[in-house]
Amino acid sequence: MNPVAGLAIGRIVIGLAMFVAPRLAARLFQLDGSGSATPYIARLFASREIALGAATLATSGETRNRLVTVGVAVDAADGVAAILSNKSGDVGKIVTALLLAPAAGAVAVGLGEVVRSRSQA
């Protein structure tokens, strides 16, 4: 599978899981899913992931490259959010690592694809 399609499908799958079962998905990320705002906040995240993944799959060429770049920025922000949550004491080191790993991996894959596509142009 092409890495860009893999990232996009991964976004959609994670987004659907968060939208359909936000408390369960939060627990899978080792987050406290008991708060009354958890489902709403999770669904906000989910809708962004689904939209970005679907838009990426629906495009090609330079438009797709721009969406991958947007995805890199979103994933980098997710990584920063994990670090800030650790620094404020909201999550421990293990949870931070669980949150940071997929964000960092997605940034690396996305950047690699953006660089590769630009070098082919």
Rank of each mutant, 00 (worst) to 15 (best):
D78F: 05
F45V: 12
I83K: 03
A104V: 09
A97I: 10
V70D: 09
T69H: 03
I14R: 09
P39C: 05
V109H: 00
A21Y: 10
D78N: 07
L44R: 13
L84H: 07
A58P: 12
L31V: 01
I12E: 04
L98D: 05
A51K: 06
T38W: 15
A101F: 11
L52W: 14
T96D: 07
P102D: 01
A55M: 11
A73Y: 10
N2M: 01
D75S: 12
R64W: 04
V4D: 01
V4E: 04
R48L: 14
T63S: 14
R116H: 06
R27T: 05
R66T: 14
N86R: 15
A76V: 07
Y40V: 12
S88R: 15
G6V: 02
S88K: 14
A108R: 04
S88N: 14
A121Q: 11
L98S: 04
S47D: 10
F29I: 11
R118D: 05
F19L: 15
V107D: 02
T59F: 04
P22V: 07
I83Y: 07
F19V: 12
L28E: 09
L111Q: 02
F19E: 02
A54F: 11
V4Q: 00
R43A: 10
F45I: 12
N65T: 15
V72C: 07
K93E: 14
G61D: 07
G6T: 01
P3T: 00
Q120G: 01
G92Y: 01
T96E: 14
P102K: 12
D75P: 06
G35T: 08
N2K: 00
A73T: 03
A37G: 14
R118K: 03
D78P: 04
V13R: 07
V68W: 08
G92I: 11
M18A: 11
E49D: 15
R118T: 08
